[in-house]
C-alpha cells in the first residue's frame, strides 16, 4: 500500500504521504529515518543532505512525490552499504569522523558525512581545496571545520592504505593509525570489527 514507492538505502518503501510533503518529512515522520536533520528547512544549512542517485541534495527542498524512481541514501544507509560491499565496521567516513572528534553537537554530521561519501565515491584523493568545496554546502555551528576536514583526510589516507600523520591536536592515546574498519578490495591498517559509530 502507499501512494508513493520510494527506494531508500536499497529498500523499496511504500509510503502514504500527501503531495505537499517533502522527502525530509517522509523520511523523518513516516519512516522514522531521523538521521536526516531538519535545520533551516529552506535550503540554507545542509543538515538535511541525502544522496540522490549518488549526489548530495537537500531533502527539505525535494518533494517526496518527485523522488520516486531515484536511489536515495540517508546516513542510516552508509554502514549497511559498506558491509554489503564486504567491509567491516562502519563506513570509513563515519569511523574517521568519530575518531577525529569532528563533531560537537552532531547536528551537521549526517549531512557532512554524506557529502564526504559522495566526494570520495567520485574522487579517490581529493585535494584539501576540493574537500572544502565539496563540504561548502554543509554548515557547522560548533566545530570550526578544522577537525571535519582532517576527518575527511583521515578517511582518504586509510582508504588508500597509507599511514596517517598524527595531528597536533589529537591526544597521544588516540588510536590514530589503528583503523577500526576495513574497505573492501583495499588493504586496511586494522581489522577489528566494531559497531562503534552505528547510527540509530
Amino acid at each position: 500500500m502507499g501512494n508513493l514507492n520510494l527506494k531508500i538505502n536499497g529498500d523499496h518503501h511504500p509510503v502514504d504521504a500527501p503531495d505537499h510533503w517533502t522527502l525530509l518529512e517522509v523520511l523523518r515522520y513516516r519512516l522514522d529515518l531521523t538521521g536526516s536533520k531538519q535545520g533551516c528547512d529552506k535550503g540554507d544549512c545542509g543538515a538535511c543532505t541525502v544522496l540522490v542517485d549518488g549526489k548530495p541534495e537537500l531533502a527539505c527542498l525535494l518533494l517526496a512525490g518527485a523522488s520516486e524512481g531515484r536511489e536515495i541514501t540517508t546516513i542510516e544507509g552508509l554502514m549497511p552499504a559498506h558491509r554489503a560491499a564486504g567491509g567491516t565496521g562502519a563506513d570509513p567516513v563515519q569511523d574517521a569522523f568519530d575518531r577525529a572528534g569532528a563533531l560537537q553537537c552532531g547536528f551537521c554530521q549526517p549531512g557532512m558525512m554524506l557529502s564526504t561519501r559522495a566526494l570520495l565515491n567520485e574522487e579517490e584523493r581529493p585535494s584539501r581545496e576540493r574537500i572544502r568545496e565539496a563540504l561548502s554546502g554543509n554548515l557547522c555551528r560548533c566545530t570550526g571545520y578544522t577537525q571535519i576536514i582532517q576527518a575527511v583526510e583521515l578517511a582518504i589516507h586509510e582508504t588508500c592504505g597509507e599511514p596517517v600523520e598524527h595531528p597536533a591536536w589529537a591526544p597521544d592515546q588516540a588510536p590514530w593509525g589503528d583503523a577500526v574498519s576495513t574497505v573492501p578490495g583495499r588493504k586496511g591498517t586494522g581489522s577489528s570489527d566494531t559497531t562503534q559509530g552505528e547510527q540509530a
Partner: peptide, 9 residues
C-alpha cells in the same frame, strides 16, 4: 550558484 547540493538539484 549557491552550494554544491543546490547545483546538483
Amino acid at each position: 550558484v549557491a552550494g554544491p547540493q543546490h547545483r546538483n538539484q
